[in-house]
């Protein structure tokens, strides 16, 4: 078993409240390209509570990335509101971590220095963060690789570095846009379990975009199903399965039932596996 000390520790320091962490109100986005306008998102209302694990599924191009980018403050909205702890989001915040499909590591920095890079940007003393960074790297199973360079790591290991990089700064909300989509099935499953273990222990709110229905149900407290473009919420499925979740859960009738529900809202046109 890997050490989960530091993560569990800072879970205690998270503010315990039941007020929503993330809210979107009539959130919409229209892109304008070459005089044409593309409605990517049409009025999305969501209320997400602290510590929830929320997955987003929907056909390609329905606006999942757009939604996440707006919640992160990386993309200006056309209309509506994004609120984090009741405050309107205007720009990216330290409390909200973002993880991409690609690890986006800097090849000239060691694993440890990649994890420490945000500290430099935040103007923190790197030496104050170093112990924390090493502890998190250990938690994600990279304790022996702190001095390796990205090119010496496998794809899955690189994505673990990206995870450590975002977790080191103790975000309250973690936005993940198909974070393990580029990995093979086996690695992805292992990464998912690890992500669950870490974020559940630290009570981090996770917004997780995926193309995989089984994965969405397995990970989440709720699954948000979106319509084809222009994207809207077409249904939200509650997943009342107990935690911690084990792979065996997938064989239970209730699990199968839930994946079927998600699939039927999607219209049965969208492949999971």
């Amino acid at each position: 078993m890997v050490n989960q000390g530091p993560i569990a520790e800072f879970a205690m320091s998270q503010p315990v409240s039941s007020a929503p962490v993330v809210q979107t109100q009539s959130l919409a986005k229209t892109f304008h390209v070459d005089g044409k306008s593309v409605v990517a998102l049409e009025s999305v209302d969501l209320t997400i509570n602290p510590g929830e694990f929320i997955s987003f599924v929907g056909p390609s191009g329905c606006g999942k990335s757009t939604l996440l980018n707006m919640i992160a403050g990386l993309l200006p909205k056309t209309s509506g509101q994004v609120l984090i702890h009741g405050q309107p989001v205007a720009e990216p915040s330290k409390r909200v971590g973002f993880m991409f499909q690609a690890p986006v590591l800097l090849p000239w920095r060691t694993v440890e220095n990649n994890v420490l890079m945000p500290a430099e940007v935040f103007g923190l003393k790197v030496n104050d963060i170093r112990d924390k960074a090493r502890a998190v790297l250990k938690t994600v199973g990279l304790g022996d690789f702190i001095n390796a360079y990205p090119r010496q790591l496998s794809g899955g290991m690189q994505q673990r570095v990206a995870l450590a990089r975002v977790l080191t700064y103790e975000p309250e909300v973690l936005l993940m846009d198909e974070p393990f989509g580029a990995l093979d099935e086996f690695t992805r499953e292992a990464m998912n379990l690890e992500l669950l273990r870490i974020t559940r222990a630290a009570n981090i709110t996770v917004l997780f975009v995926t193309h995989n229905i089984t994965e969405a149900v397995f990970m989440s407290d709720r699954v948000v199903v979106m319509t084809p473009r222009p994207g809207k919420v077409s249904g939200i499925i509650d997943v009342p399965l107990p935690r911690p979740r084990e792979i065996e859960l997938m064989h239970q009738p209730m699990f199968t039932d839930l994946t079927f529900q998600v699939r039927s809202i999607l219209g049965g046109t969208h492949g999971g596996h």
């Binding site: 992160a72 990386l74 720009e91 990216p92 915040s93 330290k94 971590g97 973002f98 991409f100 690609a102 986006v104 800097l106 000239w108 890079m117 945000p118 430099e120 940007v121 935040f122």
Partner: peptide, 26 residues
């Protein structure tokens, strides 16, 4: 410089100068 790397720096609220020295120039 890859869009992803620029986006990462924006998500960290890096200044243009920080992005230049830490990402673009290397």
């Amino acid at each position: 410089v890859p869009q992803d790397a620029k986006k990462l720096m924006r998500s960290l609220r890096a200044t243009p100068l920080q992005t230049f020295w830490k990402v673009s120039l290397p």
